[in-house]
């Protein structure tokens, strides 16, 4: 009778071991994720006031080349003066 029950008892013990190790793994994972998620870098980003921090405007390089300015000046003479 006992020899008949031994495989079942062994099977139950193995299941418990698997459940226990899985539980430990889950708890460790939770602790790690909480620790990482709540971590806050002590380094701060310091910006100088009144320094534009956005993307570069491609128009700026066009205006610096000068050709566009001459074109705009010509336009002023063409359309802004009295007919």
């Amino acid at each position: 009778m006992q020899s008949l029950l031994r495989p079942a008892i062994n099977k139950g013990t193995d299941t418990m071991k698997i459940i226990r190790s899985a539980g430990i793994g889950i708890i460790a994972g939770l602790i790690a994720s909480v620790a990482v998620g709540c971590y806050r870098s002590p380094n701060t980003t310091w910006y100088e006031p009144h320094d534009y921090k956005g993307a570069d405007d491609p128009l700026l390089s066009k205006l610096e080349q000068g050709g566009l300015h001459a074109q705009l000046d010509e336009r002023v003479r063409a359309v802004q003066t009295d007919r």
Binding site: D73, V79, Q80
Partner: peptide, 21 residues
């Protein structure tokens, strides 16, 4: 401006009251 044109408000002002450039 990138097209070499002035602001439309000034360009189309009928009495040329609004100037831009």
């Amino acid at each position: 401006i990138a097209e070499g044109k002035l602001p439309l408000c000034a360009e189309m002002c009928s009495t040329k009251a609004l100037l831009a450039g």
